[in-house]
Design a protein around this nucleic acid. Structure first.
Lengths: 95, 95
DNA sequence: TCCGCATACTTTGCGTTCCGAGGTATTGAA
DNA sequence: TTCAATACCTCGGAACGCAAAGTATGCGGA
């Protein structure tokens, strides 16, 4: 989860709703995250100092735009490596 | 989890303790499952009709050996495909 | 005009899952 | 005889992902 969110926001700052769309589109519909999953996860990541947010208003609608902090980028690198390792391990067991 | 257990047991019937070892070795130590994870999962899979078990005694030690049922093999195929799809999707988002 | 849909955020509660920790019991080696 | 390894079982907690419901705004079509 964290890897997905950090990856999406790393490409460009996004607000919650846009994160859901970005991940759904990037995965060609395979990953369709529920809002009840994403928003609490974003709060958690911000609380952990990996994301920072600011409110903006676009066309009368308020948006909370998230961007990666320095620590967030470092964490993203780590998460990527861990995912690769995990994925390879699963591949090895199931092959 | 289910994919890992079914994969390990598909190669040859195994008892719980051996499943943990098989997965740890196949993954070169990367996946080291806790017994508190594996045993309940095996009961669950057996309850779902994907595994069948029988008691054996080897050197005074009792073992519950699990093997895949027909439905278990079908499920394994499905789990493999789902994992591939999921893994590809994550790869696409994080790339 | 007004209804409904898309946008956008928030919160609550549920079910599942995985694990740590503890327990039982046997065998074999130090 | 004591300890490690083998082998099983079970309880409790913590986290997680999601469905569902709620709030609110803007916009297009009937």
């Amino acid at each position: 989860m964290d890897l997905l969110l950090l990856s999406a926001i790393a490409k460009e700052p996004l607000h919650g709703y846009a994160v859901v769309e970005a991940i759904r589109e990037a995965s060609d519909g395979a990953l369709d995250l529920a809002e009840g999953t994403v928003y609490p996860a974003l709060y958690r990541l911000e609380g952990a100092g990996l994301l920072a947010s600011s409110w903006t208003t676009v066309g009368g609608r308020r948006r909370r735009v998230y961007r990666l902090t320095r620590r967030g980028r470092a964490r993203l690198e780590r998460e990527r490596k861990e995912w690769q390792a995990f994925s390879s391990a699963v591949q090895a067991v199931t092959a």
